Computed example of a mutant assay.
Amino acid sequence: MKDIVEIADVQSQILEAFSFRHATKLFDETRKIPEAEFDTILEAGRLSPTSFGAEQWQLLMIQTREKRELFRDFAWGANGMMHGTTGQLGSASHFGLFLARTSETMKAGSDYLARHMREVKKFPDEVANGFEAVLRKFQEEDFGLTSDRLLTEWSARQAYIALGNMMTAAALMGIDSCPIEGFDVKQTQATLQEHFGIDPKEFYPAVMVAFGYRAGAPAYPQTRRDLDEVVAWA
């Protein structure tokens, strides 16, 4: 068990990391994240929790300049349009796209979930069958996930948990990041299908993310509402 001094040190490191982190718009193109450090960031995502442990997302890392440029015209949040730069697409050391699974694989009783319970979770048949029944009730009654859109949004929420954990892990190592929602979904889906072989019936582009090292100091200081404005106690 950690003693009080160690706990205080961890607390300090956590708060320093969150104060350090900002939505980096332009990265230093000359600096690349070491492989071992980025593997740690990826592991932080892989080990993140998901609803029912169903792992409702995939992460596509896009590293070649040619592949990134395929998104340039419609990923306005990553192309520097608002800042007069090459943006994250051109400057990030690592650039990724979280793909949320749709009802094709996430609806209770799907082949994917049955295989996941058997091969990944290692559930015996009787446990897997009980799990399916609980998941079906959750989707159809408790949370009302009765359409493809709602199931896809449920999957995307799981991806955001991993996204947050990856950005925090990066910040703890002094690595910058930026989550990006500024893109045209339909054009992104078409590009993913044509150039990456990703079926839009199975995957939906949830959010982009860039990692690297900032090219300069943040343009604006970090601002947030006070704690007593965002937290209520009952």
Results as ranks from 00 to 15, higher is better:
E126R: 11
A100C: 12
G216N: 09
E69G: 05
H195S: 08
T30K: 15
M166S: 10
F74M: 07
L59Y: 01
S147E: 04
T223N: 04
G53Q: 05
A75T: 03
E229F: 05
S91F: 13
D176H: 15
M117Q: 13
Q11R: 12
Q139D: 03
A128G: 15
V134Q: 15
F131D: 06
A108W: 00
S48G: 12
T191N: 02
Y213T: 07
M166L: 11
D142W: 13
P34F: 06
M208L: 14
E35Y: 01
I175Y: 02
Q187W: 10
Y220V: 08
V10D: 11
F196C: 03
F20M: 08
L89K: 07
F138N: 14
A159F: 03
L42D: 00
E194Q: 15
F95T: 01
S103E: 03
A169Y: 08
M1W: 09
K137T: 12
F20Y: 15
Y160G: 08
L151V: 15
W57C: 04
E194F: 06
E229M: 02
K122M: 14
G197T: 12
A170N: 07
A133R: 14
R46S: 06
H22M: 06
S93G: 08
A169N: 12
T152H: 04
D148Q: 05
L192H: 00
A156W: 06
N129H: 08
A156H: 08
S155F: 03
T64K: 04
P49L: 09
A100H: 02
H94W: 03
I175L: 12
R118G: 04
E69D: 14
A232V: 08
Q222I: 04
A215K: 14
M61G: 01
M167V: 12
S51Y: 04
G77I: 05
M82H: 14
D148H: 03
A75E: 02
M1P: 15
T105N: 14
A171N: 11
L163Y: 09
R157V: 07
A232S: 09
A210C: 13
T85D: 09
Y213D: 11
G90A: 08
T168I: 08
L135C: 10
D176V: 10
L60H: 00
F211E: 02
V185W: 09
L47Y: 10
A210V: 07
A215V: 07
S155T: 02
D176C: 07
Q193P: 02
G197C: 10
G90I: 04
K121W: 11
A219Q: 12
E6I: 05
F183S: 14
T105I: 06
A17Q: 03
E140S: 13
T24K: 05
H116G: 08
M1F: 10
M166K: 08
L192K: 00
